[in-house]
Each structure stands twice: as structure tokens, then as C-alpha cells.
Design a protein around this nucleic acid. Sequence first.
DNA 1: CATTTGACTTTGA
DNA 2: TTCAAAGCCAAAT
Length: 118
Amino acid sequence: MSRTVLSLPKAGRKKQVEGFFSRVYALVAQIPPGKVMTYGQIAELLDNACSARYVGYAMHAAPKERGLPCHRVINRLGEMAPGMAFGGAEEQARILRAEGAAFKKNGRVDLALSRFVP
DNA sequence: CATTTGACTTTGA
DNA sequence: TTCAAAGCCAAAT
């Protein structure tokens, strides 16, 4: 099977793993509650030195223990991670709504209002 | 060092 | 908004 999950830096690993992932973590950690950011937005803030694809990938490898509000990071459509990254898209939407994020009738986040702009 | 893959984005229809 | 295809960059094997 193709694990290819790029295994995120394990806690027991050496230092200096902080390459691209930690950078995303730091940025996501700066997202205030009630606000969300798109992968492309983060990628752009990272000096465009990376592709939006990898930004989301950093989330996939982002350990929740790190206190990383990955649930505030969504795609440009205002949708969250497919499948179950947080327990379900509905659960995810509920969390963002609890933080005060603006939601559209479509059930998606209103990026026009909840987009975090540094 | 080359290949593969991916929580995305953009453009066109 | 949705569907489809291409582009993109970085890390793992």
C-alpha cells in the first residue's frame, strides 16, 4: 500500500525537522478564534515558497497535541477536510460556528467574513 | 539523485 | 456552484 504519508516529524526524531511544517504550524497558531484561513492564503503568507497542497498536508501531519487549530484552516470553498480529519465536517462546522465564524446557508464558512487577514 | 504523492488552487466550460 | 484537467512545491523512499 502506499503509505507515502510523508510521515511527519516524530517527537523522538532529531532536532532541525522544522522545515516547512513548523512554519505552517506557527502561522496557523496565529489564527484567532472565529477566523479561518485557506490553504492558499497560508501558502501565500509563507512567501509563496510552497504550494497550497503542502499547506494542507502539513495539517494532515499536524499532531493535535501541538494545539494546532487545523480546524480553522479550510480550502477556498469554505469546506473543511474531507473524510474525517476532526470527526466529521459537520462537527468541524459546529466548532467554527461556536467560535463565531460566519457560515453561509450552504453550510460552508463565509470566507468573506471569517477570513483572517494578518 | 529520481520518482511518487498530496487536508490545494486556478482556469475553462 | 459544479466538473475536469494542469500546475505547483516540498518531503519521503
